[in-house]
Structure formats: structure tokens, C-alpha cells
Amino acid sequence: MNSKSLCLDGSPEALALPAVCRIFSRTVSAIFAAAMAVSALCVLVALAVIAYSVVVRYFLGEPSLWVDEVVGYLVVAIVMFGVASALREGRHIGVDLLTERLGPRGRRLAEAWSMLGVLALAVFLIANGWETAMFSKSIEMVSQGYLEVPLYALQLLIPFGGCLLALAAVDALLRLAFGGSAHVGQEKH
């Protein structure tokens, strides 16, 4: 995505959006702020947990056998909670060699096409991720490692990420449809 096409004032108020869309966009914005906070928190927790395990190993001589496993799940959470917010802010990378040569109208069409593609993938992830998690549940898979957590609970992060991604894509398509920009400038936290 090219940030030159990024509308700096993407706030729903600035556009002539129907009330329903405005409320939708504001709700989505609040959800994403929360999701992004969870994603960032996961980075800090991973940092703390690994640093803790190193310290404990050297000063108390104790192993922390759950760390690898927990950190692996934190990485999934960082991705699934962060992916949609990155989309909303136009941070996902596309090859813009051709699209940067297009006029404003062409670019909007290209952006709509991109968002439709993401929406298709998001819907697939919701369905396929749900199926995957339910299959794991049906044969009672547990995670490999020390914790033996039910795997389906962790795998549900995938359809959850799909839901957020779908929201972001629909929000962007609505904004495009009413003359706004696909992406929103980075929100202040």
C-alpha cells in the first residue's frame, strides 16, 4: 500500500457517511484500539517472561519449562490481534510498482480490489479456522509440551483474527464506497 494515498484525516466525521456507517466505523475503531493494545501487551509479556527465565536460570538455577510454549502462543496472539489494525492503517505491504502509476480513480479501484481480496481470505480463515479448531476439539488434542493446553482454544485465535480482518476490510470498503480513503492514519494510543 502506498502511504502517499493515505488520507491523514480519515475520521468518519470528516466524510459524508450515512449514520450507520459512521457508527460502524467508530465501533471498529474502538475494537481495533483494544486489539492492538492486547497485541502490544503480548510483546511486553514475551519480553518479561524470557528475561525472567534467564534470570531464574542463573540466579536460582531453576529451569522454566513452560516458557517456550507460552512464548509460541504469544507470537500467534501478537499476529492475530495485530493483523487487522495493521490493515486499517495501511501497513500491509503490497507491490505498488504498477498501482502507484494509476490516477486517483484507478487507485481507488485497486484499493477496493485489495480489500475484496482480504475479505475473501478473512471469510475463509473464519470458516477454515473454526473447522480446524473444532476438529482438534473432537479428538481432544492438547498442545505438545509441558502445559498440555486444549489445542482448540489456541487455534480459535485464527478465526478470531479472521473476524477482525473481515471487519477491517468491510470498514475500508464502506469508506471507499462513500468517497473516503481505504486506510486510516495511525491512531494515537
Binding site: 536460570r57 538455577g61 529451569p63 519449562l65 516458557v67 517456550d68 509440551g145 509441558y146 498440555e148
Partner: peptide, 25 residues
């Protein structure tokens, strides 16, 4: 006191019983 790369939760209880510190690297 030996830090040993373990073989999974079950066997590791045996290592711990001997005073080793298994790891899950």
C-alpha cells in the same frame, strides 16, 4: 545441577528426581 535438554514432561520428572535441570529448548 546439570542443565540437560529434556525429552518431554514425563521423562523429565526422572531427570528432576536426580537433581538435574531439564530445559525445553
Amino acid at each position: 545441577g546439570v542443565k540437560i535438554r529434556g525429552l518431554g514432561r514425563l521423562v523429565d520428572t526422572g531427570f528432576i528426581a536426580m537433581g538435574a535441570a531439564p530445559s525445553t529448548m
